[in-house]
């Protein structure tokens, strides 16, 4: 996995500051959503983030609203992954369902700084930073399959196509 620049934030980064509620029903295009990513936390972020960058945060990242745009806006802003000490449960699911990898690793959070370049090996469960290598438990297999498909909707669609193909083969 290529190296990404770290954007580091604190605990309890909520979905309102990741993607403000005023846009939730008016901004529907993912590229447009990306322009508002982290708007009420760090107004600079959306202008300066580069593809492959990595968001690092403390505990309970993504708490609050169930709005999936909080994951969508980060993904379409080019964020490679979010590393946090813990994730709020709905955000955790939404990130996977948007194909945005989420990594729980307190040690890495405590040992990387904003601006540092780090890399993540998802299969091995390793984060390489300037201060060392930090390990995390890889996500379960079925979640990795959803992530690899690019999210839940493409995953279900892929399964549907495979099922139809199998049925077609049987009938042939």
């Amino acid at each position: 996995m290529s190296k990404g620049k770290v954007w580091k934030y604190g605990d309890d980064v909520n979905t309102d500051v990741i993607f403000p509620g005023k846009y939730t029903y008016s901004v529907l295009d993912p590229a447009e959503m990306a322009k508002h990513a982290l708007e009420d936390l760090d107004p600079e972020f959306a202008h300066k983030v580069k593809p492959g960058d990595i968001v690092v945060a403390g505990k309970n990242f993504g708490c609050g609203s169930s709005r999936e745009q909080a994951a969508t806006c980060l993904k379409f802003a080019g964020v490679q992954a979010v590393i946090a000490k813990s994730f709020a449960r709905i955000f955790f699911r939404n990130a996977i369902n948007q194909g945005l990898p989420v990594v729980q690793c307190s040690e890495a959070v405590d040992n990387v700084e904003s601006g540092e370049k780090i890399s993540i090996d998802f299969a091995a469960g390793q984060i390489k930073g300037e201060k060392g290598i930090f390990t995390f438990a890889p996500l379960p297999e079925f979640i990795l399959r959803i992530l690899d498909s690019g999210g839940l909707i493409p995953y279900i669609k892929k399964k549907k196509i495979e099922r139809e193909k199998n049925l077609g083969d049987k009938n042939a």
Partner: peptide
């Protein structure tokens, strides 16, 4: 429910949890 405050229905003894949009679409479909 595709809303974080879906937890409300526990007041009546239901198991109720919030989910996101993709999952709601997926539940409609599957």
């Amino acid at each position: 429910g595709a809303d974080s405050h879906t937890t409300s229905y526990g007041a009546l003894g239901a198991f109720s949890a919030g989910i996101g949009r993709s999952e709601a679409a997926s539940v409609w479909a599957t």
